[in-house]
């Protein structure tokens, strides 16, 4: 059962993270009329492992979500190359992390608007490195 709703965003993310790890889930996504929350396993483990980490400043209205690298390697933009401001109608491969000759896709995980592309094509990225910011509005 999803835990009862706490007051602040940081607390809400932390509770969702605990719920996700306790139930061995890969991600939890909550969609409501005015907001969407999604917490992935990597972010959840980071939040639980490092409770002192403050949640990024983020208003409920903005619904901006970061997509981070979950493999270490060389980052490449997808083709056609995504661009800042682009509106995504649904799931899309935005790029990939090349690791030991294997392409590890970076997906948009749903619709949204690309707010920022945080790495350049050919950059080395490590685990958890933010790649894209998407507004899910």
């Amino acid at each position: 059962m999803i835990p009862e709703e706490p007051a602040g965003i940081a607390e809400r993310v932390a509770r969702l993270a605990e719920f996700l790890i306790a139930n061995d889930l890969e991600s939890v996504r909550i969609e409501r009329e005015h907001e969407t929350f999604e917490v992935g396993r990597a972010a959840a483990e980071a939040a639980v492992a490092m409770p002192e980490t403050k949640a990024p400043p983020q208003s409920v209205q903005s619904r901006v979500e970061q997509i981070a690298a979950d493999r270490v390697g060389i980052f490449h933009l997808g083709r056609p190359a995504p661009y800042e401001g682009e509106r995504l109608e649904g799931e899309r491969e935005l790029g990939y992390v090349e690791q030991l000759g294997i392409r590890n896709p970076v997906r948009s995980r749903g619709a949204g608007r690309i707010v920022a592309i945080l790495q350049r094509d050919g950059d080395m990225v490590d685990y958890g490195r933010p790649l894209f910011e998407l507004d899910r509005g």
Partner: peptide, 26 residues
């Protein structure tokens, strides 16, 4: 320094692909 995974050992200090990839990329 490069991050190779979350806290649990199998997903970080035992993740051979991430470690070798780090060595090559660096």
């Amino acid at each position: 320094a490069y991050c190779v995974g979350p806290g649990p050992v199998p997903r970080s200090y035992l993740d051979i692909a991430n470690i070798v990839s780090t060595a090559l990329a660096a």
